[in-house]
């Protein structure tokens, strides 16, 4: 009886706590004056601190964009570095307002966990890296290759499916730890190294001879990474989601960090006028100022600029846009119209 009573009290406290944290996040954030954004504890190109104590990376810049939409200032973010095991609890308990931490969008996470994914800021998936000297330019030419991978992950299963579906044979060389896989690949114990593509680019930088290795264009699995918010707060969900769409739309319309002011003043394109807040009350509908996109662009630039600055071909990672191109260029990044 006592136990039942105790568990009932704890249960009520839990639900009250969760309810307290999820109601009107936007008002809480505005009252607090900073956005609390959960990021990774150090992931090349996505979130890491630089020497001047600034956080940098694609996930980090998305947080800045959200903060800029709310406050007009991309600096009003408190970055909370989160471990993979505690990230969802941190979001649900209200320790962070938005989780932008290379989290894969899956059905179970979306439907059962009390969370909602707001978009896909980076389409990742399993890829292959080979030595340039092999002369291979497509994963379909890997028949008979030996492949280094980590044991006990879905990576191994995806690999088996892909090779069987394409009628190719392969030999798997599996290891317990990521470092061992890389070392084995470096020592030439296998021809191919497979893991998530963004991971391949990052691991490549740890090889002594970066320029002699190439990441093949094929992606054989779906790992859509995106920001997550708490369920049951539609206003907040909309704000995060449309921040992402605004970044895409700005790139599509050619509005950049540098030319946004000029575009606002001189563009005759009605789509640009709506995006930048010259026409309509689109910002008001989200609960922020109408010039929200101007503020976002001033803080981070559009999606393409964020991508290029943090992971793109000009950076040391050198990731190609590939499936992360806009839909117009044959990629998957697509935003509904702002109208």
């Amino acid at each position: 009886m006592k136990l039942k009573l105790l568990s009932a009290v704890i249960g009520t406290a839990l639900t009250m706590g969760v309810a307290g944290a999820s109601a009107a996040t936007l008002d809480d954030v505005k009252a607090r004056g900073t956005l609390k954004c959960g990021v990774s504890q150090g992931l090349i190109g996505f979130s890491n601190p630089d020497e001047q104590n600034n956080w940098t990376g694609l996930d980090v810049d998305f947080c800045r964009a959200v903060a800029a939409a709310i406050f007009g200032d991309g600096k009003k973010v408190e970055f909370v570095p989160l471990d993979a095991t505690q990230r969802f609890e941190a979001l649900k308990s209200g320790e962070v307002d938005v989780l932008s931490r290379n989290t894969t969008w899956t059905m179970s996470r979306d439907t059962t966990g009390g969370m909602t994914f707001a978009g896909v800021t980076y389409y990742d998936g399993q890829g292959f890296m080979v030595k340039k000297s092999l002369g291979v330019d497509s994963a379909l030419k890997l028949n008979g290759a030996s492949v280094c991978t980590q044991t006990g992950t879905t990576t191994e299963l995806n690999l088996a499916d892909y090779f069987r579906a394409n009628n190719m044979t392969y030999q798997v060389v599996a290891f317990q730890k990521n470092e061992e896989v890389l070392a084995a690949y470096n020592e030439g114990r296998c021809d191919v190294y497979t893991t998530d593509q963004s991971g391949l680019y990052a691991e490549r930088l740890k090889l002594p001879d970066v320029e002699n290795h190439v990441v093949l264009p094929e992606i054989i699995s779906k790992e859509p990474l995106g920001p997550v918010v708490r369920q049951n707060d539609t206003q907040w969900f909309n704000l995060v989601r449309w921040t992402y769409y605004a970044l895409l739309t700005a790139e599509e319309l050619g509005v950049t960090q540098a030319n946004s002011a000029e575009q606002l003043a001189s563009s005759t394109n009605p789509e640009v006028a709506r995006l930048l807040g010259k026409e309509g009350d689109f910002g008001k509908g989200l609960g922020v100022e109408n010039d929200w996109v101007m503020k976002i662009l001033a803080a981070t630039g559009n999606y393409g600029e964020i991508f290029d600055r943090n992971v793109g071909e000009a950076t040391k990672l050198g990731i190609k846009r590939g499936v992360n191109s806009l839909w117009k260029s044959g990629g998957l990044q697509y935003a509904p119209p702002i109208r």
Partner: peptide, 12 residues
């Protein structure tokens, strides 16, 4: 660990 994930510095 976080510093080692800076792409400015990451190497073998």
């Amino acid at each position: 660990q976080a510093g080692a994930a800076d792409q400015k510095w990451v190497s073998a």
